[in-house]
Design a protein around this nucleic acid. Structure first.
Lengths: 128, 128
DNA sequence: ATACGACTTAAACCGTGGTTTAAGTCAACA
DNA sequence: TGTTGACTTAAACCACGGTTTAAGTCGTAT
């Protein structure tokens, strides 16, 4: 099985190594092996897990909750129902936030329109 | 002109009074008048401004940048072009974040599907 | 008169999510 | 042999966005 150094993983996902260490410490990347010199060896599984962590982070799930999810993943198939429920709940929260932001974009557009018109008026005046 | 107490504004927008005081201190709500006893008097204009602040906050604009925007509003029409550019830039950032989240919802959906199937399999097994 | 509720202040405090620092280990290359 | 470069650790530090605390001032209702 192929393993990756922390530097490779950091480059691959374009995040600082310090963040990877921080995630491990917080329990988001469990059971990372080490080589003889104590250096982390990330497996393919860890890359997948990290992808999931980043996905959840991108949707503003707090670290403590991501940890809960990862703990359940580690626990195996007995936690499928719990994970399913968490993902369904989270999806609803994300959709709610997307609508909030989409609504706000409407307000921003409204301002943009006003400013564009104001700029046009200013230009017209200067041509008179 | 009608004025509103901090309690009324807090209730209207459903945010703590402490947050309104914090926003004033940070410069997001400028030129709030006071009554003889030193209590804040929010004008209708302030309600509008607060709506804008909340809109920008809902789209994750940092306080320092919201303050810049408000400063420009206070400066008047000479800053229209600056505000226009800021709103256009911000809109692009918000749209980018919305797509990031929308993409993440795809990943979440994928997990939901897997877990649903896994649950169904488990139920089938228990019926054998 | 007094007690209550709504308000005031400055300053201290808090959780979140990392980032930075300092000191050290190790492998490989000149 | 010695000096890079990639890694290790624990602990300190940071920005952000508020929230809480403590002590005090009003206006009004009983």
């Amino acid at each position: 099985m192929k393993y990756f150094s922390i530097g490779e993983v950091a480059a691959e996902f374009n995040i600082p190594e310090s963040t990877l260490r921080y995630y491990e410490k917080k329990g988001l990347l469990p059971q990372i092996e080490r080589d003889e010199a104590g250096r982390r060896l990330f497996s393919e599984d860890h890359l997948g897990l990290l992808g999931t962590v980043i996905c959840l982070k991108n949707t503003n799930m707090p670290i403590s909750r991501i940890k809960q999810y990862i703990d359940w993943v580690v626990d195996g198939d007995t936690t499928t129902a719990l994970r399913l429920e968490m993902m369904r709940t989270h999806k609803q929260a994300v959709l709610a936030e997307i609508s909030l932001m989409t609504e706000a974009v409407g307000g921003i557009d409204w301002k943009i329109d006003r400013y564009v018109k104001r700029m046009q008026e200013k230009n017209n005046e200067s041509e008179e």
